[in-house]
Amino acid sequence: MTRPRLTWVGTFSRMADLRRKMDSVAQVSDEDWLRLLRVPGEQAQAAHRELHALLVRGLRIGLAGRPSAEALIDDFAQEATLRVLAHLDEFRGDSSFVNWALAIAVRVALSELRRARWHDVSLDALTSDLRAEVTLHVPTKEAPTPERAAARAQILAALGQVMFSDLTARQRQLIAAELRGMPQEEIAAQMGTNRNALYKLGHDARLKLQRGLERLGLSADQVMWAFDE
């Protein structure tokens, strides 16, 4: 299906309308933000404070419903403000400056909250059961039909083959930890790397798993059917 294409005029008009609504929150142009934040002095300090206040306000709304975040929002905004200042040159103008800064603040906040929940969990302990096969734990009452059981066995064998022959030990550990819910920030910290590098490691692992599934000659629907409830 061809996606509908808007003319530049239509696109510009609707984006401008959105920005005007946002401007009621931040009545400073992107160019002014960048200028004010870059030049040292009283104006820059005032801009830092204003940006910090906007990030606090945005985080309060974006993180509503997360009680563990409430007492930390000011700290998150402080750290995010420093990070934004250190990366001003990376702002490309695709979005409004304040929204770009808020995206950074949300990452700072949620990364910290995830790590706080998982920092006592050892990656090695969590993935200590990586033996040379992949098995499926299914309660007896949910036993599949013979056809589905056969398909599951075939797919699990293929996954096991890739996991223990094609993936590196780090990729195996990453996949297992992700499946058990450990956030990437924590996996990265315990592996001594960063979230972006970890994503690339996982991407390479998923490509290998995909090729392993393709070698079975099953369609994506057939593979998913095998693991339906």
Partner: peptide, 27 residues
């Protein structure tokens, strides 16, 4: 490595959705 049904489903879904070119978390 023993996996629950939901974990296997998550694994195969992620593998099947993988594209040769993807962006990372920073991009």
């Amino acid at each position: 490595m023993a996996l629950k049904l939901a974990e296997v489903r998550s694994l195969v879904r992620a593998a099947l959705a993988t594209r040769p070119v993807e962006i990372g978390c920073d991009d």
